[in-house]
């Protein structure tokens, strides 16, 4: 538990620096600041990867079993997703929003009481590994590294959340940029962002990325629940809210197909979707009791 927390301290600083550099690049529009920001985002990603690896080694299971660990996974996935987006589309100014969100997530994780951070043994129902994978890894003596439905379920769900977080950041930028374009303002700090229609398209792409992952997370969770608890769906608040979130993003995707639901309207649905994600992740954990409540 020590090493993962040490890497957390490093990562905390890295994300702060990364967010500041991206904001600096956005405001001052200096290329070298942007390049340094991207490099720091890589360093932060590496450091977050080390948190997850160290925690897996310390706890003996995949590091997704409590609120702190899952937040690290969220930060990792969002950072990785953002870097892919930056690599493909070469828009750095967006990083100010995404890395800002990452840093807020790191502050939240930092402020969690210690009992939410400590690595605890998993109860028997959560100790599940795929036998076929254990059989594959056994000849190499690596069977203890096999994963199971729980790991797959949490991992895919969080990749989905990461896509939605990026889309949320992009939707906020879209709303600001659209207002700036409508008022005819050129240049200024909004001038660093690409055209509003491109941001809208990127936001859609981020949701299109996250949507199948959330679907996979929901289905794999159902498979696991059926396997472990005997019922694939219990209308547990977390399950219900994951479906609510999925419905909101399904509505978003359908709305884009119909004319006139792009731009502002789509951005509002994306923002509503991410608010549902936040409630699904934090609200359900703390407010609504259930099988998934990390905080219980």
């Amino acid at each position: 538990m020590i090493l993962s927390l040490v890497f957390f301290t490093f990562s905390f600083v890295f994300y702060l620096v990364t967010a500041l550099l991206y904001i600096g690049h956005w405001v001052f529009k200096k290329k070298w600041i942007g390049q340094t920001a991207t490099t720091m985002a890589f360093v932060a990603l590496l450091s977050t990867t080390m948190i997850l690896i160290a925690r897996a080694g310390e706890s003996g299971h995949a590091p997704f079993s409590n609120l702190w660990e899952s937040m690290m996974l969220f930060v990792w996935a969002t950072n990785a997703g953002y870097l892919i987006l930056e690599y493909r589309h070469k828009f750095r100014a967006i990083g100010a929003f995404v890395m800002g969100l990452e840093f807020i997530a790191m502050i939240s994780a930092f402020m969690l009481p210690y009992r939410f951070k400590s690595a605890e043994p998993l109860n028997p129902a959560l100790q599940n590994k795929w036998h076929w994978l254990m059989d594959v890894l056994r000849p190499f003596g690596l069977e203890k590294y096999a994963i199971g439905w729980l790991d797959f379920h949490v991992f895919t769900t969080f990749i989905g959340y990461a896509g939605f977080a990026i889309s949320f950041g992009l939707s906020l930028i879209y709303l600001l940029k659209e207002r700036s374009e409508a008022s005819g303002t050129k240049g200024g700090i909004m001038g660093a962002f690409p055209e509003a229609r491109i941001i809208d398209e990127l936001s859609y792409r981020a949701i299109a990325w996250g949507f199948p992952f959330l679907a996979t997370g929901i289905v794999s969770g159902a498979v696991w629940a059926n396997y472990a608890w005997g019922s694939y769906w219990s209308w547990d608040p977390k399950e219900t809210w994951s479906l609510i979130t999925w419905f909101i993003y399904a509505a978003y995707l359908h709305a884009r197909v119909t004319r006139g639901w792009r731009g502002k309207r789509a951005a509002y649905i994306s923002v509503a979707g991410f608010l549902a994600v936040i409630f699904l992740y934090w609200g359900v954990s703390f407010v609504l009791p259930g099988l998934h409540a990390y905080a219980s």
Binding site: F247, A251, H254, V257
Partner: peptide, 20 residues
């Protein structure tokens, strides 16, 4: 209609919230 799909999904989401 695709509009119906959007509205049905939105209503489902609202009702599900009520259920929680």
């Amino acid at each position: 209609s695709m509009y119906t799909s959007v509205y049905v999904l939105a209503v489902m989401a609202l009702f599900f919230m009520t259920g929680t």
